[in-house]
Measured scan of single mutants.
Amino acid sequence: CKVCGDVASGFHYGVHACEGCKGFFRRSIQQNIQYKKCLKNENCSIMRMNRNRCQQCRFKKCLSVGMSR
């Protein structure tokens, strides 16, 4: 997965992504979610083991690796 490094389940929203990141991105855009501000200057490292800790940084990384509708 380009977002968290887990095993990708396919090509989702323009990038190779796992089911977790695919679902997270889908919910984020469909529900237009505004995530809580990052407590670490929006510089969190997103990996499989910690991908749920900072939703703002995870969504930012989804966009930075090329995920789009």
Rank of each mutant, 00 (worst) to 15 (best):
N43L: 11
S45A: 07
N43K: 09
G23R: 11
C54S: 03
R69Y: 11
Q55T: 02
L63C: 06
N43I: 05
C57Y: 02
G14S: 09
C62L: 01
R58T: 11
Y13G: 05
G66M: 05
I46W: 03
V3P: 00
R53A: 15
C4A: 00
F24P: 06
F24W: 03
V65R: 01
K37W: 10
H12V: 05
I33N: 08
C57L: 03
K2T: 10
H16Q: 15
A17E: 02
K60G: 07
C4W: 01
N43T: 10
R26N: 14
L39K: 11
A17H: 02
N32R: 07
G20C: 11
I33S: 06
K60T: 04
L63D: 07
D6E: 11
N52Y: 15
L63R: 00
Q56I: 10
F59Y: 09
C57Q: 05
R27G: 07
L63E: 11
H12E: 05
H16M: 14
K40F: 13
G20S: 14
S9Y: 06
S64Q: 14
C62K: 02
K2A: 13
Q30S: 08
A17N: 07
R58H: 15
N50F: 11
R53W: 14
N32I: 08
N43G: 12
C18K: 01
M67T: 01
C62N: 01
M49R: 09
E42C: 05
A8M: 05
S64L: 13
S64D: 12
K40Y: 15
M47Q: 15
R69E: 13
G14I: 08
E19K: 12
K60M: 10
C57V: 00
S45T: 10
S64E: 15
N32P: 06
N41H: 04
C57E: 03
M67R: 09
K40L: 12
V7F: 11
N50D: 11
E42W: 04
C4R: 00
A8P: 01
V65W: 00
K60A: 12
K36Q: 09
R58L: 15
F25P: 01
R51L: 11
Q55E: 15
K40M: 12
G66T: 01
K40W: 14
Q31I: 04
F11L: 11
N43E: 13
G14A: 01
V15A: 13
N52I: 09
G5L: 02
E42S: 10
E42T: 04
N32M: 07
S64K: 15
A8Y: 02
H16T: 11
Q30Y: 02
S45E: 15
C62A: 12
C44S: 14
M47T: 15
F59G: 08
A8N: 06
R53S: 14
K40I: 02
A17I: 04
N43M: 08
R26Y: 09
Y35N: 05
C38D: 01
C54P: 05
V65P: 01
N41Y: 06
F25C: 04
M47V: 12
N52F: 08
S64W: 07
S45Y: 12
R48D: 15
Q30E: 13
R58E: 07
D6Q: 06
C57P: 00
G66F: 05
M49D: 15
K61Q: 04
S28A: 02
H12F: 06
C54M: 04
C1V: 03
G5N: 04
I33F: 08
L63M: 00
K61N: 09
A17C: 13
I29Y: 01
N52E: 14
V15I: 08
N32S: 08
V3L: 02
I29G: 01
I29K: 00
A8E: 02
C38Y: 02
K37C: 06
E42G: 14
I29F: 11
Y13P: 01
F24N: 00
F59P: 02
R58P: 03
K40H: 11
A8Q: 01
R53N: 15
F25V: 02
M67G: 03
C62W: 02
D6N: 07
V15S: 00
G66W: 14
Q31F: 13
Q56G: 09
M49K: 14
Q31G: 10
N41E: 11
Q31L: 10
V7Q: 14
K37Q: 11
R48F: 09
S28Q: 01
M49A: 12
I29W: 07
K61D: 10
G14L: 01
S45W: 06
I33H: 06
R51K: 13
E19Q: 03
R48P: 15
D6G: 06
N50S: 08
E19S: 05
F24Q: 04
C62S: 02
R27T: 12
L39N: 13
I33V: 10
A17D: 04
N43H: 08
N50W: 06
R53I: 14
V7Y: 10
M67Q: 13
C4I: 05
N41L: 08
H16S: 12
H12P: 01
E42P: 06
R48W: 12
S64I: 00
N43A: 13
R51W: 11
K2W: 04
R26T: 13
R27C: 03
N52W: 03
R69K: 15
K36M: 09
N50K: 08
R27P: 04
Y13I: 03
E42Q: 10
R51Q: 11
Q55W: 04
V65D: 05
V15N: 00
R69W: 15
R53D: 15
K2V: 07
Q55G: 13
V65A: 09
Q55A: 13
C57D: 03
S45R: 09
E19R: 12
R58V: 00
S45K: 04
Q31V: 04
Q55Y: 11
K61G: 08
Q56N: 14
M49W: 12
Y13E: 11
C4N: 07
C57H: 00
M47Y: 06
R69L: 14
R53V: 14
F59L: 14
Q55P: 13
M47W: 10
N43W: 02
H16A: 10
Q56W: 15
F25Y: 06
R48A: 14
A8F: 01
D6S: 03
V3E: 03
